[in-house]
Design a protein around this nucleic acid. Structure first.
Length: 723
DNA sequence: GAGCACTGC
């Protein structure tokens, strides 16, 4: 029996499919009445005209305007697919997939034919696909292979206001490539049309960035949300964690005094959410529904946590409507701000904080920190209450906090992240001058210089800032450049099987489960310690390799994970990443001039020596007791994280490499491996070879011979014996 | 002696 009894497969004649939209076919003329009621519908002719008339167009519209689903269909119907496909980018996989599903349904075609999607590990397109939803990262990879984007007639960048790193890079690239009319038509029958879609904010900025291109505003269709400020959290409370209690109190007040409707609470992380849920549960137990609760139809409270690392089936529970009479209260991270939409939310409790990963170029580290959200983000959170009817948003912070502690806009990712991979991508696209590249918001110059310095250290670019052969290979891998460097070293020595699983394990989410309850915690820790392997000595990278192999060869891998307190979901994605990396490597080995080296060292040390070629920027040396000192020029004092198998064995160690740094009560290094000084001796001087200020000319590729000479003398002076 | 939000290739 069919699940959809009224669904009829459309009759598609083979010859008709490819150009169907622009012929006089009546297939698309019968729009369903639902899409006719969308605010965008009245503007459809003007919109297609606007796309025709200008190479760039900005379209703004709030959620519910229908721009993501309708505009591609209008363009399709107007004949734009005659010259190529229409690409619509999304910052997230799920969005690309679900929107494509809906549009395929509206256009009455099977998904993957005229309408399809492409995300990593999942390409649902065919020869017939002319409307293609995809993640911004996928389109960026396509630009790398074909900078002219010759198979597309229109590229639509959606959700620009979220300012994802990839979308920002694409925007700059499209401006650079297609704002020059001569370049824009080069090798094309029809100049590429670029449409940039965003929520209403910042449309002027976008328009002027794209040469004062026209702006098309579509009214949204959401309900009003009234916002109130609290009295407890003021500008002085930025460092405190008092907001958890305050949030619980506010949620409880809403439950007892407001009419029926579900509650969504925004907090910053897993442990905080679990604590808030416990507190709320305690309070909710004391309620007498005969007297305490104003709305007589409300007879109970269902409290549900929601965060990213939660098991998927548990996440699914969130979307179930609560039983009659029960009010649902979801306590979530920022995942509920954009990634997941929960229906039925009428009340928002906003803590005003978020956990954000910021790159600190002063110490050369990424730091995850709790910071106040921006005003635009607060509005976004509030908007989550107005999707089905009028809602209310309770901000626990004061008006003064709003005015003094919260910035207008969130700093875009490109300005607070390490740019090493981005700069390599740009260089490979022929963007030599990465400083004057058209960024919508320019990153600080020292961020760019730091990235160049790292790329130079990895031999991905040469002293004049040109991409090396190795750099060309590196850009093909969806990994951090250092990790790629190690992988390529291993491949050239023929031992890629050691590095492929390690690289995969390090590029997926954390695989170790650590529960909140202390007794369970002990159990999990014990299991994890048992997984640590001794290859000559303890080594966290080798442990990852061993976990990967043990699980993969297990008869029941998911049971194996459960037993060992490992996230099965994470390990599954590590398996697919490993396969993908292996395929990329094989392809490159077949077509490129791939380096081959011989190894005359100790075989049991092979893995660690390969790691050294990519991690010599992350070397630390024990200075005193349990304190290590990084050798990256910053000389930061760090400790080995207690989750490492090398924790408590510091006395036996002198030199180590580490995968990442975690800043909490101390500065911790995680995923650690002991090394011998000889392995990095020849690499370390490279860390001090180039001064960041000298690199600004590398960035612009304007290095004169005189400058080169100056460097070489300085470098010789710096190369001192022993270090 | 432990405190990793969220994406993406």
């Amino acid at each position: 029996m069919s699940i959809f009894p009224f669904f009829r497969k459309p009759q598609i004649k083979k010859n008709q499919t490819r150009l169907s939209g622009m012929s006089k076919s009546t297939r698309w003329d019968s729009e369903d009445s639902e899409s006719k009621q969308l605010p965008i519908y009245q503007h459809r002719n003007k919109l297609t005209q606007a796309v025709k008339n200008s190479p760039f167009l900005v379209v703004t519209g709030e959620t519910g305007s229908g721009k993501t689903t309708q505009l591609p269909q209008y363009l399709h119907r107007a004949g734009f697919c005659k010259y190529g496909k229409i690409a619509i980018t999304q910052p997230r996989r799920v969005a690309a997939i679900t929107v494509a599903q809906r549009v395929a349904q509206e256009m009455r075609c099977p998904l993957g034919r005229e309408v399809g999607y492409q995300v990593r590990f999942d390409d649902c397109t065919s020869q017939d696909t002319v409307v293609k939803y995809m993640t911004d990262g996928c389109l960026l990879r396509e630009v790398l292979a074909d900078p002219g984007l010759s198979q597309y007639s229109v590229v639509i960048l959606d959700e620009i206001h979220e300012r994802s790193l990839n979308t920002d890079i694409l925007l700059g690239l499209l401006k650079k490539i297609f704002s020059n009319p001569a370049k824009a038509t080069k090798g094309r029958a029809f100049p590429l049309k670029v449409v940039v879609m965003s929520a209403t904010l910042e449309s002027d900025k976008l328009s002027s960035f794209l040469g004062d291109c026209p702006v098309f505003a579509i009214p949204g269709r959401t309900f009003p949300v009234t916002c109130t400020f609290g009295s407890a959290i003021g500008p002085k409370d930025i460092e405190s964690t008092a907001y958890v209690k305050e949030v619980v109190k506010m949620a409880f007040d809403v439950h007892t005094s407001e009419v029926a409707g579900d509650i969504l609470v925004f907090l910053t992380g897993q442990s905080e959410i679990e604590r808030a849920c416990d507190l709320l549960f305690e309070k909710a137990e004391t309620v007498d529904y005969r007297f305490d609760v104003q709305d007589p139809t409300v007879e109970g409270l269902l409290i549900l946590p929601l965060y990213g690392s939660m098991p998927t089936d548990q996440q699914r529970q969130i979307f179930q409507p609560p039983p009659p009479g029960i009010r649902k209260c979801v306590v979530a991270t920022n995942i509920a701000a954009t990634s997941l939409t929960i229906n039925g939310i009428k009340y928002i409790i906003d803590s005003g904080f978020v956990k954000q990963l910021n790159h600190n170029s002063r110490v050369g580290m990424d730091i995850l920190e709790v910071v106040p959200i921006s005003k635009s983000e607060a509005q976004q959170r509030a908007g989550r209450a107005g999707r089905i009817s009028a809602g209310k948003c309770f901000r626990i912070y004061t008006k003064e906090f709003w005015e003094k502690s919260m910035p207008e806009y969130t700093i875009p990712e490109i300005q607070r992240t390490s740019l090493t991979a981005v700069v390599l991508t740009l260089k490979c696209l022929g963007v030599n001058d990465v400083i004057s590249f058209p960024y919508l918001d320019r990153p600080e110059e020292r961020f760019i210089l730091e990235a160049l310095k790292q790329l130079y250290q990895f031999d991905a670019i040469d002293r004049r800032g040109r991409v090396t052969q190795l750099g060309e290979l590196m850009v093909e891998f969806p990994l951090h450049p250092g990790l790629t460097r190690s992988l390529l070293k291993a491949a050239s020595l023929g031992c890629q099987d050691l590095l492929l699983p390690v690289a995969a394990m390090l590029s997926v989410e954390n695989i170790f489960i650590r529960p909140g309850r202390p007794e369970k915690q002990k159990e999990a820790d014990k299991k994890h310690r048992g997984l640590a392997t001794r290859v000559g000595s303890m080594n966290d990278f080798a442990t990852l390799l061993s976990i990967f192999q043990s699980c993969k060869s297990s008869d029941r891998p998911s049971a194996w994970c459960k037993e060992n307190w490992i996230h099965w979901r994470a390990l599954k994605s590590a398996f697919s990443v490993e396969t993908q990396l292996r395929e990329i490597l094989l392809r490159l080995q077949q077509v490129q001039n791939f380096p081959v080296e011989t190894f005359d060292g100790n075989k049991s040390e092979l893995l660690r020596q390969c790691l050294c070629t990519g991690y010599f920027t992350n070397v630390a040396r024990r200075s005193m007791g349990k304190v290590f000192c990084t050798m990256d020029g910053h000389g930061s004092m760090v400790h080995i994280h207690p989750s490492s198998s090398l924790f408590d064995q510091e006395a036996e160690l002198n030199w180590v490499i580490f995968h990442d740094v975690l800043v909490t009560s101390r500065v911790y290094i995680r995923t650690v491996c002991p090394i011998r000084y000889e392995w990095v001796k020849d690499l370390l001087p490279k860390l001090h070879e180039v001064d960041v200020y000298e690199l600004s000319s590398v960035a612009r590729e304007e290095v004169t011979d005189k400058e080169m000479k100056k460097w070489e003398t300085r470098e010789a002076a710096k190369r001192q014996p022993g270090f």
